[in-house]
Design a protein around this nucleic acid. Sequence first.
DNA 1: TGAAATACCTTTTAGTTCGAGGTATAGTGA
DNA 2: TCACTATACCTCGAACTAAAAGGTATTTCA
Lengths: 113, 113
Amino acid sequence: MAQTNPPFMSGVPELLLLRLLDQREMYGYELVRSIKSATGEAISLGEGVIYPVLHSLERNGSLKSRRKPVGGRTRVYYSLTSKGRKRLNKLQDDWQRVQSGISTALEEGFAAS
Amino acid sequence: MAQTNPPFMSGVPELLLLRLLDQREMYGYELVRSIKSATGEAISLGEGVIYPVLHSLERNGSLKSRRKPVGGRTRVYYSLTSKGRKRLNKLQDDWQRVQSGISTALEEGFAAS
DNA sequence: TGAAATACCTTTTAGTTCGAGGTATAGTGA
DNA sequence: TCACTATACCTCGAACTAAAAGGTATTTCA
């Protein structure tokens, strides 16, 4: 069914990845679980979402990565570049604007005269 | 350039239209301006967004319309059906979930020990 | 031995927002 | 009268992207 453009999710994976990686270096598989817990189980993103976004963010210079062997397996750790930090700020501003706009619209009508 | 899927906008036009039309009957051109003012100028949607969404919502039974001649011009007024009201409730729940999930994720780290 | 968890990845699909462009009438001011 | 703006409807094409499903390979644990 591939529910695309699901309500209110556009830009969300990117924002969450940047936000989490701004706090500390993490690898893909770890991010999948971190997003669930960081959002209080409200948002869950599969690997099919995470990896492509990670790759495109690295391609455009927002993230850098380093491979790190851990007990036979290899993990790819990602961290923010300064460009990524700028991008995070922009997305947070965008989010704030949309969020407050919608709040205003939804709350209206309480004191409908 | 057609910047599509701009951050955080997916589902937003539908939510706002349903919300405004739940308060009172309105026509397309009017909705364009109402969205701007209802969101405190934070969100602005062009006619190229409004009309297609209006049509698809009517097609799926969330809205019904009636034509009304007003001073030589014809306006198409839209209003919610019961299906549209259910849809509005679902979208509001979705929004609430995403909104609180993101707030939690963004606020985290204040008291980072 | 087998199943589950870890860890990486790609491909395909299904939209949906947005800008630009198009038609036509009514109202306004010069 | 002429031009311009506002009103009011609409369509089309492009770009972007979240999600599901499927794929590989290793380690851990019962």
